[in-house]
Amino acid sequence: MSLIVHRIGPACTIQDKGRVGYLDQGLSRSGAADQLALHEGAALLRQSPELAALEMAGMGGEFEATQSLGIALTGAPMQASIDGAPVVWNASHQIEAGQRLVIGAATRGTYGYLHVSGGIASEAFLGSRSAHLTAKIGSTIQTGDTLPVADGSGVTGMKLNPDDRFSGGVLRVIASFQTPLFDQETLDRFVQTEFRRGSRANRMGMQLDSEGESFAAQGQLNILSEVITPGDIQMTGTGSPFILLPECQTTGGYPRIATVLPCDLPRAAQTPAGGQIRFEFVSLDTATALQTAHNAELARLPMRVEPLVRDPHDIPDLLSYQLIGGMISATD
């Protein structure tokens, strides 16, 4: 079973939860920029969040299934249609052999996800299917590629109503080992500043712009290179911050002012160019409570899925519509 790629945006890659255990070899985790989307897709298709999906940065593509297939669409909302009929985002759908799934540009946020029932079955490397472009592992998907799909009996015709995380907002951060390199005045100014996501952004990191002074640390140029984790907010030589993302370097010499909480990283990664961001420090105890609540939410996602109620006006040719597949019933 497979999905044929007839057209594709410039920055689409296969992603799962990432590759753990190679930090000591200079290889960062990679994995989906919006990990919450992986859990949403899994809940919509009633399958494991460990399965790989297609991550689409800003723009999707045109796909054809070789066999009947369940799909789910999550993350940054994009215009999507099956054989010209619009389909709902944050939902799972059935696509029949030969039908064309067209996914356009993101209307909000940055990273949209296409999940398939059974998961994308590309070859795994060191325990993960995630592309890591800076490490030259995997590559962007090209027109003419065929995405192998594992067998799966994903349920379709379901939807979710996720919280909005596609337009920036307040990111909760915790102090990290280099935070004390910044003086109190700089830290105060950091949390008072309204940042905008800059144009320099990819899966390694995203630059933040702001008016006014930059945010330099003491002795900034003489700091020993030290471990980096995704979510670190790094001050470059010019003192402007970068939020580091799944393909970040494993070590670096630029100081990190704070670290975004893992549960707020999807919101960070999804912030579109120009989107506004502010930071709020929380204690480690508060962070633990927030993260525990987030993990409980992930575990509850499969219970929050509900049947997709279709408005008959949205179905262009109701009489010819395939009403027997999946969970779709005549009363939908």
Binding site: G231, T259, L284, A287
Partner: peptide
Amino acid sequence: TTNTADIFPRISTVGYDG
């Protein structure tokens, strides 16, 4: 919390889980 005292070995926190 993290500290900057010049005493080694020194234990400090790295983000949420390090």
